[in-house]
């Protein structure tokens, strides 16, 4: 295994504050002499299964040591939580999950060697039962969308209280998705405003109907040409409008021409 990070060696005979505060936490980058082999199940499946009454194993990933230590102290006060490791980079996060099998991973979005969404994608591909809660200093919609796409169970802006972080960890462990309402409202708003799909979303039949619309054909004309009922053609038109985010047949044709879904030659 590659040696991913040097641990800052505390002065001789001195224990670092980190060690004092988190003395039962094994650091993933603690070096070979502190090799952690709690679990032998290589896929991590068996060990990350829930067992009634057990403590929730939590991993913390944040490149700001001060924040990671602080979160560790905060979570350790909870009797049902156990901090199993702290990591500062994407590489260390992956190693942490591989070696310590946390039930829940608190993952900072911005890390020195990559972003949280990439890390989450990789972790969830290899250890799908892990629950990832994304922490982000900036609560941007884009980060939220990428986190959800990556399969994260929760998303918390860092301006939330410690209590909310604890709730998010517990909710994620229970298999719930926790996204603050304010964040969700922003996301829904964004989805409403975003163009509803592209050419790739059109079925072959819808594409044919669109081309005929572009030629100026009526619903009746299209239905007789394609041997479809007018009702079916109207359904296709409705779907085309929805997929192109258009409010009329004219707008649908305009959008389709603009986006290159159909060419103007279709009209001739």
């Amino acid at each position: 295994m590659q040696n991913i990070a040097e641990v800052e060696a505390p002065e001789e005979g001195m224990r670092s504050v980190t060690e004092i505060l988190l003395d039962d936490v094994e650091y993933v980058n603690a070096g070979p002499e502190r090799e952690i082999i709690d679990f032998v199940d290589p896929a991590g499946e068996a060990s990350s299964q829930r067992v009634a009454g057990e403590r929730i194993r939590v991993g913390i990933v944040d490149d700001h040591a001060m924040v990671a230590e602080g979160l560790g102290v905060l979570l350790r006060e909870q009797r049902d939580l156990e901090i199993v490791g702290i990591a500062a980079t994407v590489a260390e996060a992956i190693e942490l999950v591989e070696r310590r099998h946390p039930h829940v991973l608190l993952l900072d979005y911005r890390l020195p060697d990559g972003d949280g969404a990439t890390a989450a994608t990789e972790i969830l591909r290899r250890w799908p039962s892990t629950k990832v809660v994304m922490l982000s200093a900036a609560g941007g919609d884009e980060l939220l969308a990428r986190s959800i796409e990556a399969g994260c169970s929760g998303f918390l802006p860092k301006d939330r209280s410690g209590r909310e972080v604890v709730s998010a960890v517990r909710a994620a462990y229970r298999g719930e998705s926790l996204i603050p309402t304010s964040v969700l409202v922003g996301l829904l708003d964004r989805l409403r405003r975003a163009p509803q799909g592209k050419a790739g979303d059109l079925t072959q039949r819808e594409f044919e109907v669109l081309r005929l619309l572009a030629k100026g054909m009526s619903t009746e004309g299209i239905s007789s040409l394609l041997f479809l009922s007018e009702h079916t053609v109207r359904n296709h038109v409705r779907n085309i409008l929805a997929k192109l985010g258009a409010h009329s047949k004219l707008e649908a044709v305009a959008v389709a021409a603009r986006d290159g879904i159909i060419s103007l030659e279709d009209r001739t």
Partner: peptide, 26 residues
Amino acid sequence: DQEAIVDALTRLLAEQPDIEVLGAGR
């Protein structure tokens, strides 16, 4: 302005015998 960090650091600092945290702001 990051409340979770304020919470965390407040607890951490309060554990020090020679430090008294009088308040925290956002």
